[in-house]
Design a protein around this nucleic acid. Sequence first.
DNA 1: GTCATTTTGGCACTAAAGTATGAGTTCCTT
DNA 2: AAGGAACTCATACTTTAGTGCCAAAATGAC
Lengths: 136, 136
Amino acid sequence: MKKTIVVFSLLILAILLLFQFSKYTFISNNLQIEIVIGIIAIAFFFIGIYINKKSLHKTDTPSVEINMKKIEELGITKREYEVLKKISEGLSNKEIATILFLSESTIKTHVSNILVKLDAKRRTQAIQIAKSLQII
Amino acid sequence: MKKTIVVFSLLILAILLLFQFSKYTFISNNLQIEIVIGIIAIAFFFIGIYINKKSLHKTDTPSVEINMKKIEELGITKREYEVLKKISEGLSNKEIATILFLSESTIKTHVSNILVKLDAKRRTQAIQIAKSLQII
DNA sequence: GTCATTTTGGCACTAAAGTATGAGTTCCTT
DNA sequence: AAGGAACTCATACTTTAGTGCCAAAATGAC
């Protein structure tokens, strides 16, 4: 950002100098002044593009907002959502059970409910659907 | 895009008119010309930002570059890669077999090879790994 | 044409995943 | 305190998934 400000300032200075220079050499020539204005217009046009591109690249967060509303809409509970996230991490039912201090049976129940709520036939499809709905 | 061009053209016209107007009213006042130039500079600066934003929104491709090099590195073959993509779409082995006109046995073979090459224990983990490696 | 790799696929088997049903517990709300 | 939703777990069963081993075509490079 500091760099941008410096570049920007230098450009303004250069344009002002250009203007001052033209004022004393072509003061009587209106056509010349129009050319100077044209150059300035084009220059600032590209400066605008450049700065915008820079700032956009900074905020180029690929973070996908999680659609909480959708989760509620689908009636997915807290526990089910926890399990869903673990599924998307590629964990098995047994592994999820161990991590959440539950039995594998419980995880199976949760998974079954998740599949119904997401209208999926398999856990892999549930991952795909959940991602397309931006809930994980 | 047509709209942008029209807006752009109208702005240029307005600025030229402003310039012409100022030329006949404040022709002797250099300070006034400087102000006009400043206005033009600011105007084109924002035009640049506006147009850039428009064009960027059009090419707002959330496309994550697929790491072909990584696929080769892992020794994943064409057929295996096809199967991997189908897995990530949440399809079962039987469904993949139907789509690719192969037997389920063949798909199982491919899946097993994929799991070894991606160092995954399950297809769900393979999806997660493949995504983190940006190969799907 | 030969050799290595890829692709295909079968069979037998084990391991996970998923379904169905039922039931006890906890927690929140009215 | 009663009712409902959420959470927990079990048992029995069916369906997928995944492994190991083998082997025949097909493909492509040298």
